[in-house]
Design a protein around this nucleic acid. Structure first.
Length: 204
DNA sequence: TGCCAGGCCCTCTTTAGGGCCTT
């Protein structure tokens, strides 16, 4: 059974190219749909967290002041993930911070990413919203702590990933739902999803 | 101090505009 690393960052803003930095990272390691390990740490990037971000995440400047340096945390996170393919909700966001923070730590970011937001848009067009919290309510996923903290959100994203895999198995007869299938589905038009999966099952 | 950027998706589209999603 293959491993998947579900990651969530809390940050000072939306864009690492605009100077925003990570303040917390959490990674849930799945073996199949089973959580087998967790990684979570605040990190001190040496930048000030805006007040509205403190209110949004609950992560304060005082909290990160006593946290380990970002480079050390990212080195540990990279070792924790290893070669496992990664998943995040709105992965474009987390992938940018994963790459930017690892570059600062002088480490490569080679893991492929799949995205539960893109997958949910394909598979659950009837959902009222594709925000992580809304999808959790839509699927009645268990809540695990304060939203907008890294580990709680990573746990919810992992549960959402398991729901997605479950539905792919149930609706399309997919056996082991591999990461490359997720990438193919999220990259196809919604109406093309059944055809993409059928081609995948034929070994194409 | 504050809702920044980037990418996806839909439609009153494609020579574009705007909403959604992440912090």
């Amino acid at each position: 059974m293959s491993l998947t690393a579900v990651i969530d960052f809390e940050t000072t803003g939306l864009s690492p190219t605009q100077g925003d930095r990570a303040t917390e990272v959490a990674i849930v390691l799945l073996e199949g749909d089973q959580v087998v390990d967790r990684f979570q740490s605040l990190m001190n990037a040496g930048v000030r967290i805006p007040a509205f971000i403190e209110a949004y995440t609950g992560i304060t400047n005082a909290m990160v002041a006593s946290a380990p340096p970002a480079e050390a945390v990212m080195a540990d996170a990279a070792r924790f993930v290893g070669d496992a393919p990664m998943v995040a909700h709105n992965a474009a966001f987390d992938r940018r911070f994963w790459a930017a923070e690892l570059e600062r730590a002088d480490r490569p970011a080679t893991q492929p990413f799949a995205c539960t937001l893109l997958l949910s848009r394909r598979l659950y067009p009837q959902a009222p919203s594709h925000k992580l919290g809304s999808l959790a309510a839509f699927h009645a996923l268990p809540s695990s702590g304060r939203a907008h903290r890294a580990l709680a959100d990573a746990e919810v994203a992992a549960a959402l990933l398991s729901q997605i895999r479950h539905d792919l198995r149930r609706q399309y007869g997919v056996g082991e739902c591999r990461h490359d299938l997720l990438v193919q589905v999220q990259g196809s038009a919604r109406k093309a999803v059944p055809k993409v999966i059928a081609r995948y099952l034929e070994g194409g």
